Each structure stands twice: as C-alpha cells, then as structure tokens.
Amino acid sequence: MAASFISRMAPPRLRIFYAILAIFVVVALFAPWIAPENPNSQNLLGRLKPPGSDVRGITYWIGSDELGRDLLSRVIYGARVSLMVAVLSVVGSGLVGTSLGMIAGYYRGVTGTVIMRLVDIVLSVPAILLAIITVAIMGPGLVNVVIVLAFTRWPRYARVAYGQTLGLMSLPYVRLSQTMGAAGPWVIRRHILPNIIGPIMVVVTLEIGLMVLFEAGLSFLGLGVQPPTPSWGAILSSGRNYMTTAWWIAIFPGLCLFTLILSVNVLGDHVRDMVEKRR
C-alpha cells in the first residue's frame, strides 16, 4: 500500500526520497517495537564496541557508545524525538504565523502594520541565535525546544500568508462577501484560508527539515533534549570526543540527519513545483 501511494505521488526520480522519508516516519512511530534494546540500558563491559560486536548476548549492530548503550536503539529513538519536535514546532509556528498573516492582510491598517513590523523585528535576529537565547532563558527540555522553535519560525508563515491574502482581497468573490456584510473571520475561514493552503504547505515541507536541523543543533550544544533521552544532536555531541577511537558514535546519527533533511528538502521542492503548476 505504501509503495503504491509513493508511486502515485512522486515521479520515478524522486521515489527513493519519498521511500526514505516514509522509512524514517515508520521507524519513529514504531521505535519501541523496532529497537533491539532499551536505548538507556547501560553495559559498561560493552562500551565503545565497534559495529557487529557481541557482548553478554547483546549484538551492537552499529556499535555502542561510551556507556555501553546500543547505538542502533538510540538512533532509532532519536528519530522519534527529532520528527516529533519538527512536526509539533511546525504545527505551532504554522498556526500562529498563518493566522496572524491572514489577519494582517485582511484588516490591513494599524493591525496589519503592527503585525508585520513584529514580523520584521523577529526576522531581524538570526533564527538559531534567537532560539539559543530563548532556550537559555526558558531552560532546556523537549517541551521548551518545541515552544522556542515555534516562536522563532512563525514569521515566515506570516509573510507568506500576508502576501497571499493581499492578492486575494481584490478578487470578486471576496469583495462580494464583504459587500454583503460577511464577518471578517467568516471570509478568512471560507475564502482566504482554502486558497492559500498550497503556498503554506510548501513552507511546511521546507520548514520540517530546518526544525530537525535546529533541534539537533540545540541538543548538540546541550540546550535541547536532555539526557538520557536519545537525540541525534546529543549523540553527535558525545561522539565528537571519540572520533579517533569510536567514529561510529558520530557517523551514524550524522548520516541519518543528512539523509532525513535531504529527503524532506527534495519533498519540499516537489510540493513547490506542483503548487506552481496549478497556478
């Protein structure tokens, strides 16, 4: 079923990327059943073992870390953390940014000016720097990382929604609804939102990869998901100390990050092309 869906959605040259993304999603959803070991179970006799090692009945398929934890299990659970943070932060920032952008574009005037100047202020600070500052103030943790990433990325949705809404305001059916006395929220919900959902979805697909990268960066710096919860960024951070003796600790989560972000970005480009063709 999944294979037939991918074949219908993507051209042949992109099916591999759709399949890779689907694999990551399945692994994240079913991590407790797929992971061979408890990701936090320590075995000091098996610390820093290379891929394929077998210690006390435990096979370390891609090696173990400095505490003897199964790296494969930690990478699998790390996929769950990364995708959960990415999806939740994208949903949060998308809802806030799209709503504010439509309100600014529909009402314009003082309301629109205030909202868009706030957008300019947030965008004037680099997103990763703003995220680091905010996490440092709020404290690290899974929930705080989601809130921080949603807070730093909503302006991108607001700008897209604002521009698309301005373009729709001159269309006959929107002006007719206003002339007949339709309330602003009704017009936004009935006429504006359905017609800007395509460009917003393009932003969503591109932002998911960025959210995965930002979460990994914050965890790498110790400001994201906290130990012992597995996170690709945290595993990379610990693995950098063992690059010469246990290269696998950093290499495998790094490859997962690269592959996931590449697949999501290719998906985003494909969605953008489809939206542009329909215009």
Rank of each mutant, 00 (worst) to 15 (best):
M1P: 13
A3Q: 12
F5Y: 02
M9H: 05
A10H: 01
P11D: 04
P12R: 11
R13N: 10
R15Q: 15
I16V: 12
F17R: 04
L21A: 12
L21C: 06
L29R: 05
A31D: 03
P32M: 07
I34V: 10
P36N: 08
Q42V: 13
N43K: 07
L44K: 06
L44V: 09
L44A: 02
G46R: 12
R47L: 04
K49N: 09
W61L: 15
D65M: 09
D65I: 04
E66D: 14
L67Q: 13
G68T: 09
G68H: 07
D70M: 10
D70L: 06
L71I: 10
L72K: 06
L72F: 12
R74H: 08
Y77F: 15
G78M: 08
G78H: 12
G78E: 00
A79S: 15
R80V: 01
V81Q: 14
L83F: 12
M84R: 11
V85T: 08
V85E: 01
V87K: 03
L88D: 04
S89M: 08
G92I: 13
G94I: 06
G94S: 11
L95Y: 12
G97H: 05
G97S: 04
T98I: 03
L100V: 06
M102Q: 09
G105L: 08
G105A: 06
G109R: 15
T111D: 00
I115E: 00
L118D: 00
L123R: 04
P126L: 02
P126M: 01
A127N: 08
I128Q: 03
L129K: 05
A131K: 06
I132T: 13
T134A: 14
V135A: 14
G139K: 09
G139T: 01
G141Y: 04
L142W: 14
L142V: 14
L142C: 09
V143C: 00
V146I: 15
I147E: 02
L149G: 07
L149P: 06
A150M: 07
W154I: 09
P155E: 02
R159N: 06
L166P: 09
M169A: 03
M169L: 15
S170I: 12
L171M: 11
P172K: 03
Y173M: 10
Y173N: 13
R175P: 02
I188A: 10
R189K: 11
H191A: 01
I197T: 11
V203A: 13
V204W: 09
V204E: 02
L206Y: 10
E207G: 13
I208C: 02
M211Q: 14
L213E: 03
F214M: 13
E215M: 05
A216G: 14
L218V: 05
S219K: 02
L221R: 00
L221P: 04
L221V: 08
L223W: 04
G224V: 05
Q226L: 13
Q226N: 06
Q226C: 06
P227A: 05
P227C: 04
W232V: 02
A234F: 08
L236G: 01
S237V: 11
R240Y: 11
T245E: 01
T245I: 14
A246S: 14
W247C: 04
W248G: 07
I251E: 03
I251H: 03
I251T: 14
G254Y: 00
G254D: 05
L255W: 11
L257T: 08
F258I: 14
T259M: 15
T259C: 12
T259H: 03
L260A: 13
I261F: 07
V264L: 15
N265H: 08
V266D: 00
G268S: 03
V271H: 07
E276Q: 14
K277M: 11
